[in-house]
């Protein structure tokens, strides 16, 4: 039985899961909650459009050299990237011992992901330091945030560990508490509830730094929070600061 009513974890591998260990973390998460695992590699159509512009070129982040962005080569490299992503994903799923499904789609990552998602889905995203600011990733996360699915932010290079499931709640009625409780029960951890300002929040919300500081040495395994609450905008940064997955609930 899954909890809390989730059935599927969706991992976008084209622009959404750029962290090197994200397939493994996603697979481990899916297994712990008894979720199906779906990986989607979206071939970003916008990128294909950009490559057709006469002045388009790309820079290699390692050598810092520029070269023309050729559509034909880009197609080939996308296929190679998809194959590599599939291999990584398949290996991670096998290690976790869960069945996996892998799909390749072409289009705009955001609408594609939104079209896939339902209420019982969790969309996992894992930004790298520089990948998080790209157009495709922002489109994906923006759409995912607006979809009925929950969003799971995976930190880069997180080590699996045991610890309480922390509900970062705006108040005692925050629905994230119930969801966090169900998850904790499901995976055999305890529930901890954190309300940093006791319900007195500024309009602009609470910064990730403040929230992370409030958690102090909780030693949590995962943080759950509500998208509409005062912490909804800081999930990505909070995940990176605490080094644990952050589940943003609808």
């Amino acid at each position: 039985m899954s909890a809390p009513g989730f059935r599927r974890l969706i991992l976008e591998l084209g622009v959404g899961a750029t962290g090197p260990s994200s397939p493994r973390e996603a697979a481990a998460f899916a297994k712990s909650l008894g979720l199906e695992l779906l990986a989607v590699f979206v071939e970003d159509e916008a990128l294909l459009h950009a490559s057709a512009l006469p002045f388009s070129r790309e820079i290699d982040p390692v050598t810092h050299r520029w070269r023309p962005l050729e559509p034909e080569r880009l197609e080939n490299e996308m296929r190679a990237a998809a194959a590599w992503a599939r291999e990584r994903f398949s290996t991670a799923a096998k290690e976790a011992g869960i069945p996996e499904t892998f799909e390749i789609r072409r289009g705009d990552p955001g609408p594609l992901a939104a079209g896939l998602c339902v209420e019982t889905d969790i969309v996992a995203v894992s930004p790298s330091r520089i990948g998080g600011a790209t157009h495709g990733f922002q489109r994906l996360t923006a759409t995912a945030q607006g979809s009925p699915a929950a969003v799971l932010w995976l930190p880069p290079n997180a080590a699996p560990r045991r610890g309480p499931i922390v509900a970062a709640a705006a108040d005692a009625a925050d629905p994230c508490i119930a969801a966090a409780r169900q998850i904790a029960e499901r995976i055999g951890e305890v529930l901890a509830v954190a309300m940093p300002r006791g319900g007195d929040y500024p309009v602009a919300g609470v910064s990730a730094e403040e929230l992370a500081g409030a958690l102090n040495d909780a030693g949590e395994r995962m943080i759950a929070l509500s998208r509409t609450g005062p912490f909804g905008e800081v999930a990505a940064e909070l995940s990176a600061r605490r080094g644990v997955p952050v589940l943003v609930l609808e």
Partner: peptide, 11 residues
């Protein structure tokens, strides 16, 4: 800023 399979590009 767009991510390509091998780097970054601008459009």
């Amino acid at each position: 800023i767009l991510r390509t399979p091998a780097g970054f590009t601008l459009a």
